Amino acid sequence: MKPFPSLKRTWKRDRTDTNSKRQSTSFPPMQRKAVRLLRLNEMSLKEASTASGMSIASLKVNVHRAVKSLRKILGDRSEP
């Protein structure tokens, strides 16, 4: 009898889950750019707009959509 017969199946399943999460977290370029500038680089909306050539409204929309997608992926149910 093998000591851990289901370990290989569990490992394969975990690898598959990780791959699907990785694929689902690749956001569209505009969303990535908006998040990078506003959240990671901590630029103001005006600075990010100048640096990216995107309007302030477009930056807000793209960050909102990226955060909404992340919440869905991570299972956060704090927002309807």
Rank of each mutant, 00 (worst) to 15 (best):
F4C: 02
F4K: 07
P5W: 00
S6C: 02
L7E: 14
L7C: 03
K8C: 00
K8D: 02
R9H: 07
R9S: 15
T10A: 01
T10M: 11
W11S: 02
W11K: 08
K12V: 06
D14E: 09
D14S: 08
R15E: 12
T16R: 14
T16V: 06
T16N: 06
D17I: 04
D17Y: 01
D17R: 04
T18K: 11
N19D: 15
K21M: 05
K21P: 01
R22W: 05
Q23L: 14
Q23T: 12
Q23D: 08
Q23N: 10
S24N: 12
S24E: 08
T25W: 12
S26E: 10
P28A: 13
P28N: 14
M30W: 06
R32Y: 12
R32L: 06
R32W: 06
K33C: 05
K33D: 05
K33S: 09
K33P: 02
V35G: 10
V35L: 12
L37N: 02
R39E: 10
L40T: 02
L40G: 01
M43P: 01
M43W: 05
M43V: 01
S44H: 00
K46P: 03
E47T: 09
T50P: 03
T50N: 13
T50A: 10
T50D: 10
A51L: 05
A51T: 07
S52P: 08
G53L: 08
S55W: 12
I56V: 12
A57T: 11
A57K: 15
L59W: 12
L59A: 04
L59K: 05
V61M: 13
V61N: 11
V61E: 11
N62F: 01
N62W: 07
V63T: 04
V63P: 03
R65T: 04
R65N: 13
R65V: 04
A66T: 03
V67P: 06
S69H: 15
S69W: 13
S69V: 11
L70R: 11
R71M: 14
K72M: 13
K72Y: 13
I73L: 12
I73Y: 07
R77P: 06
R77W: 10
S78R: 15
P80I: 09
P80T: 13
P80W: 13
P80E: 11
